[in-house]
């Protein structure tokens, strides 16, 4: 293999559109290139129809776009994407491969890392290049109780970014880039076959997509108070979550659980009511833009991560908070 050089982003598509997490990865790639003068940013886009997405990737700084259009790629296909990515790595011979820790990335990135002879720097929240041109990856570990910085020491470094850790950059439509069409045997790559897909239509907004999440914990004392949280969430156009303690107690279904063993949410506003803030829970919500905590224990861990806190009895705080909100929101 020739000398490894440049950055390759493993792009993801949502239908025929480029995923927001991929735009974040492109922004991360461009900022790393500042420390790698003369090197290039490339991307892979695989989907049913990638032409429009390729132009958006170029506007976001990709100088070469490896594409493959196939109807079978309209659904998430990790094995096919791994095979395509492997081929693109062979052609582009990058120094760094960047992906996202998404549903698809979770399956694709570790496999790709293994196939190119390294391991994945998983769930990264910041990336940098050191003096020896090694990739430095910073990531939360132990459920957010610790932060590790690792240097990637293999010939090719592979990293997956946590969603919303890095802001996407403004597109520049004057940029130009090269489109390279890949040819990969997708049928041979697939050994796990989908036989059925069962959709559960959840009521209201999905927890993971909600701009506002109102979560309740052990401090609520039972299932009844969650009705109040539902009202607050409805008022703010959000969804209701819960801590593990509240789910384990059977107050709400386990699908409500936010945390290391539940869902990861990244809303604009996260309101935690009666949640102590064990690291196990914070791992699922610490990337929210603003955390508001209501807890009667002034020493609760949650106040460390909260932008605004009220140390008080939620039974008194919450009704007044909601009444005032009603007034303010008209």
């Amino acid at each position: 293999m020739a000398d490894c050089n440049g950055i390759l982003v493993i792009g993801e598509m949502t239908g025929d559109e480029i995923a927001s997490t991929t735009l974040e990865a492109l922004a991360a790639g461009r900022s790393l290139l500042a420390s790698l003068p003369g090197e290039k940013l490339s991307i892979i886009l695989a989907g049913a129809s990638t032409a429009a997405a390729a132009q958006i990737a170029i506007a976001h700084g990709a100088e070469a776009v490896y594409t493959i259009d196939d109807p079978s790629l309209s659904e998430p296909a990790p094995e096919a994407i791994v095979a395509i990515s492997e081929e693109a790595v062979r052609q582009a011979s990058p120094r760094i491969v960047l992906g996202s820790k998404t549903l698809l990335g979770r399956d694709v990135m570790p496999r790709l890392a293994f196939r190119v002879g390294t391991a994945l720097a998983q769930d990264c929240t910041a990336l940098a290049i050191d003096g020896a041109k090694r990739l430095l990856a910073t990531r939360p570990v132990y459920g957010g109780n610790a932060v590790a910085t690792i240097a990637c020491t293999s010939k090719i470094s592979v990293a997956a970014l946590r969603a919303k850790s890095i802001d996407a950059a403004e597109p520049d439509d004057s940029r130009v880039g090269l489109i390279v069409t890949l040819s990969v045997d997708l049928v041979a790559a697939v050994r796990v076959h989908s036989v059925d897909r069962v959709e559960q239509t959840a009521e209201g907004i999905r927890l993971e997509d909600a701009p506002v999440v109102v979560s309740g914990g052990r401090g609520l004392g039972g299932p009844e108070p969650f009705k109040e949280l539902e009202k607050l969430a409805a008022l703010l156009g959000g969804a209701v979550g819960a801590s593990r303690a509240a789910c384990d107690a059977g107050w709400v279904p386990s699908s409500y659980q936010v945390g290391l063993t539940g869902k990861t949410v990244t809303p604009e506003l996260y309101i935690a009511v009666g949640i102590s803030g064990a690291s196990q829970h914070m791992a699922g919500c610490s990337n929210a833009r603003t955390i508001v905590a209501i807890n009667k224990d002034t020493g609760a861990n949650i106040f460390k991560d909260a932008r605004f806190g009220v140390a008080g009895d939620w039974q008194k705080v919450l009704p007044a908070f909601m009444e005032q909100l009603h007034e303010l929101l008209g």
């Binding site: 430095l136 991560d305 806190g309």
Partner: peptide, 16 residues
Amino acid sequence: AFELISLDKPQSAVET
């Protein structure tokens, strides 16, 4: 694949 450079308690970036 990796060399561990540092392992620290997270600094809370938030002023409460």
